[in-house]
Computed example of a mutant assay.
Amino acid sequence: MNHTPHLSRLAALALLVFAAAAAHAADTTPAEQLGRWSAQAGAPGSVSKGQAFFNQRHGGEWSCASCHGTPPTRQGEHASTAKPIAPLAPAFNAKAFTDAAKADKWFRRNCKDVLSRECSAAEKADVMAWLLSLKP
């Protein structure tokens, strides 16, 4: 019995699955994310509001800067677990905000930690506008 055709099909299928996963992992750009959140908010993101929001504690123990640093251009560290966090500013991390699902997931989690609620589209647009303004 010759298993070669079957193995070739499995290899091809595995390659397709891997390619689809890789394509999904980079399904957007930071600028497209800014555009999406600005459209949802009905206003463009504000660099100055984004910087203020990022550094503010919002009545809780943490701010975004507590883990991501200020400015978030170098590796950060989670405030309670000490796990390393890649730079958040896209100019310093080519993978930042290139996966829409991950961006939504982490905004949801981090906003709940910092604000005890989800961030609004306007808050996301403001933070993204500021992050995009950070250059080497």
Results as ranks from 00 to 15, higher is better:
H3C: 08
H6E: 13
S8N: 15
S8C: 15
R9C: 08
A11E: 14
A12Q: 12
L13K: 14
L15C: 13
F18I: 15
A19C: 12
A20E: 14
A20T: 13
A25T: 13
D27A: 01
T28E: 04
T29W: 07
P30Q: 04
A31L: 05
E32Q: 07
E32A: 08
Q33S: 05
Q33V: 08
R36I: 11
W37G: 06
W37M: 04
W37A: 04
S38V: 05
S38W: 01
A39W: 14
A39F: 13
A41K: 12
A41W: 14
G42C: 08
A43I: 12
A43R: 11
G45H: 05
S46N: 05
Q51M: 00
F53N: 01
F54Q: 00
F54G: 06
Q56G: 03
R57H: 09
H58D: 01
G60H: 10
G60P: 03
E61R: 13
W62N: 10
A65S: 11
A65Y: 04
C67E: 01
G69F: 05
G69W: 09
P72A: 05
P72C: 06
T73H: 06
T73A: 08
R74H: 11
G76R: 06
G76T: 06
G76S: 02
E77Q: 11
H78R: 08
A82V: 15
A82Y: 13
A82M: 12
K83I: 08
K83A: 03
K83H: 15
K83R: 14
A86Q: 10
P87F: 01
P87I: 04
A89S: 02
P90G: 04
A91N: 05
A91S: 01
N93L: 00
A94C: 09
A94G: 05
K95A: 12
F97H: 00
T98P: 09
A100D: 14
K102E: 11
A103Y: 14
A103Q: 14
D104I: 07
K105G: 11
F107W: 12
F107I: 08
R109A: 10
C111P: 02
K112D: 15
D113M: 11
V114F: 04
L115A: 03
S116T: 09
S116L: 09
S116E: 13
S116H: 10
E118S: 05
C119Q: 02
S120G: 03
A122H: 10
E123F: 06
E123D: 03
A125Y: 07
D126R: 00
V127I: 07
V127G: 01
M128E: 01
A129T: 03
W130Q: 06
L131Q: 06
L132M: 01
S133Y: 07
L134I: 02
L134V: 06
P136I: 04
P136A: 00
P136M: 02
P136G: 01
